[in-house]
């Protein structure tokens, strides 16, 4: 009897540390943010009342044109970088999946981790240097081609592109690694059989490899979408949301409200709306893209 009870509690005891940690660092701040989003909460006015104001903050956010503009800009960014990262990532994964070139392949795989291990802020600083008008390496390449220097970070469209390029640089390797893992899941005998049937790599990709890649692609879509919705450091360091508001993505705007204006009520409402949006998108991705491989 006693043993049975212990056995029943043992699994709970094992997962308890993880669950408690998750509650403390995940759920508690979330609940606090939800509560704050229903209050008037100006950090810099400690004496002002912190009353509950119902859905006022949400109404303010939803009728704020700047919020919608920066959200729209974030989706433009997402639609620009995600397909490129997926395409480049898939290309790299397929190249690395090819047999042969043992040492080189291992080295490449290791070097793919480097951008991932770099802090966003550092990527932003590197970006400022790469796209510097006077000393930047990009303009140097342009000059080799006889092209005039471009003021990358001083013009809205090019600044947007520069931030996107840095994001693609940093995250394409991640996509490549995830997809490479997918490719190694393909049973070799099936792949070999397919290679005997057809010489078209496209057909092999479409019918043999893609089903194994879909879970990875879904994960990439979910993670990268969530990442871009909260992309802050890179943009803040590179352009601070400027010039004008050309690179003010949604999280840069939220930071501005939360930590410059210090209106935590509004900022929390924005963050909660963003969370809801992320969840909806994730569900969509899972429904539309994700397929289990039937063995």
């Amino acid at each position: 009897m006693a043993r049975g009870r212990r056995e029943r509690w043992a699994p709970l005891a094992f997962i308890a540390p993880a669950v408690i940690t998750l509650l403390a660092v995940g759920l508690y701040p979330l609940i606090l943010a939800v509560i704050t989003s229903f209050r008037q909460y100006l950090v810099t006015k400690p004496r002002a009342p912190r009353d509950f104001v119902g859905f006022d903050n949400y109404a303010t956010v939803l009728t704020d044109p700047t919020f919608w503009e920066s959200l729209g800009r974030t989706f433009e960014f997402l639609l620009l970088v995600l397909p490129i990262e997926l395409a480049l990532g898939l290309g790299i994964a397929l190249l690395l999946h090819k047999p042969g070139l043992g040492l080189l392949r291992t080295l490449t795989r290791v070097s793919l981790v480097i951008p991932l291990a770099t802090t966003f802020a550092v990527v932003g600083l590197v970006g400022r240097l790469i796209f510097n008008r006077e000393f930047g390496v990009i303009n140097w390449f342009l000059s080799l081609l006889g092209l005039p220097p471009v003021e990358w970070l001083g013009q809205p469209a090019t600044a947007f592109a520069a931030v996107a390029i840095m994001d693609i640089w940093q995250w394409t390797p991640f996509v490549a690694l995830v997809l490479l893992a997918g490719l190694t899941m393909v049973p070799p005998e099936i792949e070999e059989a397919a290679r005997l049937e057809t010489k078209s790599p496209w057909k092999i990709l479409r019918h043999i490899q893609l089903p194994y890649l879909l879970p990875g692609i879904t994960a990439v879509l979910i993670l990268r979408t969530a990442d871009i919705l909260k992309l802050f450091d890179l943009v803040f360091v590179m352009t601070r949301g400027g010039p004008g508001s050309a690179t003010e993505l949604i999280s840069v705007y939220i930071q501005r409200i939360g930590f410059r204006v210090f209106d935590q009520g509004i900022a929390s409402a924005q963050a909660i709306l963003l969370l809801i949006l992320t969840i909806i998108l994730s569900r969509l991705y899972i429904r539309l893209v994700y397929r289990e491989v039937e063995a």
């Binding site: 006015k45 809205p156 010039p243 004008g244 508001s245």
Partner: peptide, 21 residues
């Protein structure tokens, strides 16, 4: 105390002015 909030607005629209937007 309201300057930081106002400064943010000026920073955004001031650069937009300069860019001719």
């Amino acid at each position: 105390p309201e300057w930081p909030a106002i400064s943010e607005i000026i920073a955004e629209w001031g650069t937009k002015m300069m860019l001719g937007e």
